[in-house]
């Protein structure tokens, strides 16, 4: 029985006052999706090689890592701090470049500011590609093209930021109020002037919020880029694990934790400052 139809009462007349059924019956599409997902999960689980020995030895091995990790090594802290600093710098430079570049791309991608629908499609696709390829994959690509080190890391973070910030900027631009934009159009301003005077200022608070969030995300991302050789603290982490120096690895993990938490905290505070905390509902 489909939704919102009429039912026949016992005497055969049609009861049109009945309300639509509470729950929509799932369609074939939904059913097939669930079956496919379940099938994949079962297939994956069966290929996991979950032998009893492996499961039994896991706690002991984890304990081995933890007991050798504590106390964390302090001898290499100055070196590690330098690598951490490099990580933070990579994140800042990459995010700054990414945010600056995502602004024009977002203006080309947003439906209401794009010069042509083809440009809109092209810019949107570019953003999708940048966002959909995982950052470690970008890092490997850039390590191949510019070599090992922080430049590859910066480029990775830049691309990752453009993919993310560009999409959010474009969406924000598309939902802006008509009022200020029409006010500028009605003065006879050029499209460029309308963007500079109305679109960017009205979207600015949201842009800064998104940018700070990107910075936070980049610090987290930058910490692992070294795993594929793209500079920063991840390089040290990789080496420490390969040499089974778990105490150094533990130091690095703690440093990453502290820096990421600090970055989140700082960007939270800055966002609040910049947005006045929003309208209170109390």
């Amino acid at each position: 029985m489909s939704r919102g139809e009429t039912t026949r009462t016992r005497d055969g007349s049609v009861d049109v006052r009945r309300s639509p059924s509470r729950f929509a019956r799932p369609g074939w599409g939904g059913l097939i999706t669930v079956l496919v997902l379940a099938g994949l999960a079962i297939h994956g689980a069966s290929g996991l090689d979950l032998s009893p020995e492996r499961l039994l030895s896991a706690p002991a091995r984890t304990w081995d890592f933890l007991s050798r990790g504590f106390p964390p090594a302090t001898d290499r802290v100055p070196n590690l701090a330098a690598a951490m600093l490099e990580t933070i710098e990579m994140a800042i430079i990459g995010t700054a470049l990414g945010v600056l570049l995502s602004l024009p791309i977002a203006l080309l991608a947003a439906r209401n500011t794009t010069p042509h629908s083809w440009v809109h499609v092209a810019a949107k696709s570019l953003l999708t590609v940048m966002r959909s390829v995982p950052d470690l994959v970008w890092a490997m690509v850039f390590v191949v093209s510019v070599g090992l080190g922080p430049i590859a890391g910066i480029l990775t973070i830049m691309v990752d930021t453009i993919g993310f910030a560009g999409r959010f900027f474009a969406e924000r631009i598309e939902e802006l109020d008509r009022g200020p934009i029409d006010a500028l159009r009605s003065t006879g301003a050029t499209r460029l002037s309308v963007m500079a005077c109305a679109v960017i200022p009205t979207a600015f608070p949201s842009f800064t919020g998104t940018s700070l969030y990107c910075l936070e995300k980049s610090v987290r991302g930058a910490a692992v880029l070294g795993l594929v050789g793209a500079g920063g603290i991840g390089v040290e982490l990789n080496v420490a694990f390969q040499l089974r120096q778990f105490d150094t690895a533990m130091t690095i993990i703690i440093m990453i934790l502290v820096v990421v938490l600090l970055a989140e905290r700082l960007s939270g505070v800055a966002r609040k400052r910049m947005l006045d905390g929003g309208a209170s509902v109390r």
Partner: peptide
Amino acid sequence: TVFQSINLVDQVSVLSNVIHGSLGRQS
């Protein structure tokens, strides 16, 4: 044009809003 309520750019100064009036003749 003087439209209903939201016809200024809120995030910039009053003076900037007035200066926008000149964009049609001095772009």
